[in-house]
Write a protein that binds this DNA or RNA. Structure first.
Lengths: 337, 337
DNA sequence: CTTGGCACTCGGGAGCAATGAGTGCCAGCA
DNA sequence: TGCTGGCACTCATTGCTCCCGAGTGCCAAG
């Protein structure tokens, strides 16, 4: 259907258009790439490519521009992920290794990725559901108020206030704390609900209301935090590209956690970079953007995803390289802390 | 210098320009507001106002537009803060009272403020320096690693990893934890450094390295977190106004913590709303924006600031009303949790 | 299948006139 | 002294035409 030269033409169109941001015509194409044929031949090829829906012209008498379908073919078959330079890798490593807690790791990662790709970066916090309990802490913070702190093996710390009906003794708290920790230590968060089901029965009669209160808040925390936290950075990079009309829509989408979550999407083939182009996106208003995303995690364990959002007209090979590299390094950093 | 009518004219110009976003001329002015004089008279007044620098015309044969100086006069002497409607107040209250921890309070606040004013909202986390220690927790998370968790009376939780040279026994940790808590409980964070200076001397010889490590991390935390955390929301609202060229600069500024901090500025008269207009701003690139900010806190204690950033051409009375109201409610919520 | 040639299309920019909102100024009037 | 109506003037904006050139599609020949 499409012979080698037509594919080469498509590739050239994508590359030229990405770098110049101007519709590319048959003449400029033969000038810039040495395709060994005349512009008339290219024109014929382009007519075919257009008929098949890989490219389009904004208006008659203008050059061609890749369509989403064209980008898709380019990503799937015409390009390879471009590895980062040694200098870049080193920069990533030193920058990330300076982080001192989970918030900081995520914060640095998202800024790094934004800067590296000059686009909007999105990073999801490590999943709670896949991590396990490292420690549970109960701290009295005021009359009738306890603070429940849950620490996971991924370094995440969750906190919730518990209202207790009356004053609670230090011993009761200490007892409950010990009980919780022996029950839960090392347990996957998904298994917590069943493990603590019979907790109230294990404490003395007087402390049962307390135990029940703590328990309900603990379970709530697990459920609510299930919808993961997600952050972005580099919105300023959007202004550089001129999205003119849809810029507002894109900004709105970015501020909506739920949309961001869907944006990164479910894990495709793990250990690979996923690309979603233009209308392949689940969200309206992001129809003119592409998302390049990847899983990150420690060893075989996938913790969450991160990625980049930019115009469909983006440098896919480089972006994919940056996303892949950052995902790997974050994994390493998390493993080592 | 400026008689009452000239002030009335200035007020009318500001109000008209804010609502229509078009330079306002003498004719439209007498039509819309009943000033009781003819347009020629208004023209004379406008000439004076322009000479004094309160208004300017984008080009000859165009209407007048307020200058920063004009807005300043308007805010200081020609307008009063517009209180929110009962419905709005109720909405704020119910929305904020649904929050369940500090992150959530701040997150809801910033989104609320952005939506209420249709501009960019900025909220600073409650200051660490002005709060006091509620509890210190030490948790072993791995071989050679401890997690230090610091809980303050404002509900803020700080965490840091401590690298210990060797394995540390549970007892050592327990001892140190108890020691820290008796030393620090209720202490203002500013007083922590002196209070813990002699800590290593209070533990048995073998635990001194541990104590020193914990100590240094604790002090680091206090210093580093001194530069407070700050968040924003509503960037999408920027796209609605057409900042055309400077939009990028504004977005850049928003992502820079340091700039944001400076933006809210030092507390002016507390319990009042502060307005900074256009070039009064410390930052270049925000020359065409205004900031409306206020302190918030519990009772007499000021914890931090929050505010709104928008075009100089904004509805100051309403914005000030919204900022003031939200600041008050956040204070109430924090007091009650 | 490729190529040079050629007519055709159409967006974008330059040039130009008409429009009209808005101004500054002035002389007259209370 | 301050207000007013009148009037000439300015100038951004709009709509119009015209022209240019990049780029195409098609065709006949190699």
């Amino acid at each position: 259907m499409l012979d080698d030269r037509k594919l080469a033409v498509l590739r050239a169109i994508v590359e030229d258009y990405v770098s110049t941001n101007e519709p590319v015509g048959s003449k400029t194409l033969v000038d810039r790439h040495n395709l060994g044929v005349s512009s008339a031949t290219i024109r014929n090829d382009m007519a075919v490519l257009e008929e098949q829906g890989y490219i389009a012209q904004p208006h008659t008498s203008a050059g061609r521009v890749p369509t989403d379908k064209g980008y898709r073919l380019f990503v799937d078959r015409l390009s390879t992920i471009k590895p980062l330079s040694v200098a870049e890798r080193r920069a990533i490593e030193t920058f990330l290794s300076g982080a001192y807690d989970l918030d900081d790791v995520v914060g640095r990662t998202v800024r790094l990725l934004a800067q590296l790709t000059r686009q909007v970066a999105v990073v999801q916090y490590p999943s709670l559901t896949r991590s396990s309990v490292r420690h549970v802490e109960l701290v009295p913070v005021a009359e009738g108020r306890l603070l429940l702190v849950l620490i996971t093996n991924t370094g995440r710390v969750e906190q919730r206030v518990i209202e207790t009906s009356g004053t609670v003794s230090e011993e009761s708290i200490g007892h409950l704390r010990a009980l919780l920790n022996t029950c839960l230590d090392g347990l996957g968060l998904g298994d917590v609900p069943t493990a603590v089901a019979d907790l109230p029965e294990k404490v003395v009669q007087a402390d049962r209301p307390l135990a029940a209160a703590v328990l309900s808040v603990l379970l709530e925390t697990l459920v609510e935090k299930h919808e993961e936290k997600i952050v972005f950075a580099g919105a300023a990079n959007l202004a550089a590209v001129d999205f003119s009309p849809s810029l507002r829509e894109v900004l709105v989408a970015l501020e909506e956690q739920v949309i961001l979550m869907r944006l990164l999407g479910e894990t495709g083939d793990s250990s690979t970079v996923t690309v979603r182009i233009g209308t392949e996106n689940p969200d309206l208003g992001l129809r003119s953007t592409s998302v390049v995303a990847a899983d990150y995690g420690v060893g075989d364990l996938t913790l969450a995803r991160l990625g980049v959002l930019g115009p469909t007209r983006m440098d896919y090979p480089s972006t994919m390289g940056a996303v892949r590299a950052v995902a790997r390094y974050v994994g390493q950093i998390l493993a080592g802390s």
